[in-house]
Design a protein around this nucleic acid. Sequence first.
DNA 1: ATGTATGCAAAACATTTGCACCTGG
DNA 2: CCAGGTGCAAATGTTTTGCATACAT
Lengths: 137, 137
Amino acid sequence: MPNSEELRQAGLKTTLPRLKILGILEDAADQHFTAEDVYKRLLDSGEEIGLATVYRVLTQFEGAQLVIRHNFEGGRSVFELNDGKHHDHMVCVKCSKVIEFYNQQIENLQTEVAEDHSFTLQEHALVMYGLCSDCVA
Amino acid sequence: MPNSEELRQAGLKTTLPRLKILGILEDAADQHFTAEDVYKRLLDSGEEIGLATVYRVLTQFEGAQLVIRHNFEGGRSVFELNDGKHHDHMVCVKCSKVIEFYNQQIENLQTEVAEDHSFTLQEHALVMYGLCSDCVA
DNA sequence: ATGTATGCAAAACATTTGCACCTGG
DNA sequence: CCAGGTGCAAATGTTTTGCATACAT
């Protein structure tokens, strides 16, 4: 279970739901969860936390920059712990595995393109869809 | 109004709703519409076409590669005519304007990154969020 | 004619919100 | 104690579906 200090720093009161949810995200820091995923894990570990609270907490965490929310294909949002290091994603269309990557050249080119169009870039999302090495076999 | 041949080639029977919807998309080939946008335009031009039909037709068009569906931020899907030329998008977070762009170097780098991870790339979506030149002023 | 498409209303989802109750500091 | 957080249920917004009717070939 995470230190309550992390929540304090984010300006959030230390409560059991918040600690539990942050714990789940930290235990699998490289994974991506839907709100429902988090909710199921809470139930599995015997917690009585409502789905609405999961949504509220994840939204607060997003506001506090503790997590990042993604809108991959399929209508539902996925959340991942924000480790401070920006990266982009490859999503396997078969097994839904998510691979993270970072390419400085691509980042630089995006900045250039934005400048060429007088566009003030705030953030971006690059998602590549395809088959991971396990699924292509 | 578009030629019924385009629908025929896509394997879709020529019907009035399909022709009308395709017409709207073609009349503004560089714009991006939500299903509701298309529905409103139909109503404005006096057509009695249900929203459910708009969704069904757009989904069929997507399957037929006539249109491309995007999941930008904000929960709703947007559709654009598929002109066959791949491109990526900048979305203004203030006025929702969509600017298209294409950068061959970025495309190439994506292919490289995928290869480096033994990932079989099928498609990708690069969306840059920020302020367009009108909104930054 | 006949199989497919459409319209409407209802269902299905993901997410948000109102409100009474509970909790952390 | 008291502001803020949580649970539940109901509301919301978008997209899908069931079914009877209408249409294209």
